[in-house]
Amino acid sequence: MKKTALLAVILTGALLILSMENFPSWGDVQSPASLHLSRHFIEKSYEQTLTPNLVTAVLGDYRGFDTMLETVVVFTAALACFLVIRLPRDVCTPGLFYYRHTRTGLVVRKHDACELPGENPTFERVDSDWPPHDVVVVSTCRMVIPFIQLFGLYVVAHGHYSPGGGFQGGVIFAASYVLLAVSHDLRTLVHRLNERVTHLLSAAGVLLFFGVGLFGMAMGLNFLDYGALEGVLGMSLASGHSLGILLVEIGVGMTVTAALVIIFKLLSSRGTVTEGL
């Protein structure tokens, strides 16, 4: 098997190497790839969209439909994980469960918790395999998380002028929640962002994107034509496009944050979304 694999790989590689004979060399300014489409984008996109970051302009506006589908892919991934590994809520979860008495710090162990006690003030649930409550880690993360979230928002909002945008900002925002789960435990995260909220948020983000597109249709233009935003608040055509990109990026950010949190929660808790990591 390994030898066949090696042979196949070497053959494919050789064929690929042979087929790169007529490619332009590295950094060639006159190659077709940097002349036809990209020249137009570099020279025209600022006056058409008022967005200095060309990547954002092309991503959010010229290829906006691609970006919408890309958001849909993230949304799909979250749904797919939910469909494949989420365990039904009423199923008896086998294994060990630990409860700590809040006053004395005494820990009680329970097998096969079919009926989990609800919000009980005297006992709190402790993760069985990951009890990190370390004072250094917890307090540092508590201090750092707001800054990470602020930075995530900045990356979403400043995508017009610097590297950034909805996807990157959304990932940073989701990372702050992952850090919350790592430093505290998964239940803290679920308490802050429960499943319902994350699912609704992910759908709302795509719907915001979709809504911007439908607004274009409602104004008599094509789907996703941000030119429809012209005249809103007295804006010019180009700043309408700029606003459209911003709205779209916010939608993307919401979906990406929610979807990544969903995937993290499901994967780390093996589908129970109660404890894990």
């Binding site: 790839a33 940097s34 489409l37 990209s38 984008f41 570099i42 060309l54 990547v55 302009a57 092309v58 991503l59 290829r63 691609d66 970006t67 890309e70 892919v73 993230v74 799909t76 991934a77 979250a78 797919a80 994980c81 494949v84 590994i85 945008g165 996807f167 995937i263 499901l266 994967l267």
Partner: peptide, 24 residues
């Protein structure tokens, strides 16, 4: 050239999504 970066932003997102589903 900004276009390949745009395309790859999409492809990266797609590959991350695929990996998530695969791990599930």
């Amino acid at each position: 050239n900004p276009l390949p970066h745009v395309l790859m932003l999409t492809a990266i997102v797609v590959s991350v999504a695929t990996l998530g589903v695969a791990l599930a």
